[in-house]
């Protein structure tokens, strides 16, 4: 099976951040591979190990995103396409979905895997947009993948339970990080990744009109969350504090 996995470079949510006059200031060096995409890569690698095939990653991003691509290659992906962006564009999920769809238009593949959401913005839109643009069968929020008789069988997490869905190929699927623990590249993988091919592609070569990529949505500013009043910590003899807090929930917080 031929897997294309869409991977995104995102800011590390653990990196210190601050907001100044509505602008978000973060260390530009602290970028990571989106955790959900790492799960998608992992799952594709497992399926490739079982059934054979090829895993190629696709990333739209600035030059620095090559580090993110290397990470996926070090995990074991076979090759990569880097669709170059300057990083200054104000793209939203719809813009990325259009670029990805244009890239996939003339490609052959069985499965396009994506993350279920970007861990910095939690949008969760790109996957189903790509599927719609390419008229592919798809599912979202996969927590398990299997290949059976050339079809993709997806276990998806729904609102109250899980659904087993069978998709003919080619198809698209967005992956939850609850699916697996992505492998941490070992040193041999890191070394091998350097020799794996990264195809660099300009957006302009994909035959899309720049104006079409202009985002309909725009982040106008950032702000702090309304702070939660830090509460009180009760330390001491378990029995005593347990009863004390139970009482307070009734008399003070009024939630019993």
């Amino acid at each position: 099976m031929k897997f294309y996995i869409c991977i995104k470079m995102v800011p590390d949510v653990y990196a210190p951040l601050q907001i100044k006059e509505g602008e978000l200031i973060m260390d530009a060096d602290r970028m990571v591979l989106n955790a959900y995409d790492a799960s998608a890569v992992e799952e594709a690698l497992v399926l490739k190990e079982k059934h054979g095939g090829e895993v190629e990653v696709v990333c739209i991003g600035p030059a620095k995103a090559s580090e993110t691509i290397r990470k996926a290659l070090a995990m074991g992906a076979d090759k990569a396409t880097h669709i170059l962006a300057t990083g200054d564009e104000e793209y939203d999920s719809a813009s990325y979905a259009k670029i990805l769809s244009a890239f996939f238009k003339d490609k052959e593949y069985d499965v396009i895997g994506l993350g279920k959401q970007s861990q910095d913005t939690d949008s969760g839109l790109t996957g189903s947009m790509v599927a719609e643009h390419l008229s592919l069968p798809y599912t979202t929020n996969a927590v398990g993948l299997e290949v059976e008789n050339g079809n993709l069988v997806v276990k998806r997490q729904g609102d109250s339970g899980q659904e087993m869905i069978e998709l003919p190929t080619p198809c698209a699927v967005t992956c939850s990080n609850d699916m697996n623990d992505p492998r941490i590249p070992n040193l041999k993988g890191i070394m091998a990744s350097k020799r794996k091919p990264i195809d660099q592609v300009e957006i302009s070569s994909l035959g899309i009109d720049e104006t079409e990529l202009q985002a309909d949505t725009k982040v106008t500013s950032y702000e702090e969350k309304p702070a939660r009043q830090a509460g009180k910590k009760y330390e001491g003899e378990a029995e005593e504090v347990a009863r004390e807090v139970a009482q307070l929930l009734d008399t003070e917080a009024n939630v019993l």
Binding site: Y234, V241, A242, V245, A246, L256
Partner: peptide
Amino acid sequence: EVADYGIVGDLYKVLPPFIEEIKKI
């Protein structure tokens, strides 16, 4: 840091009296 009421303790020791007290209330 986000809790209004924080109980520092082993849950196996804290929960039984906690449950009992809530039952009483």
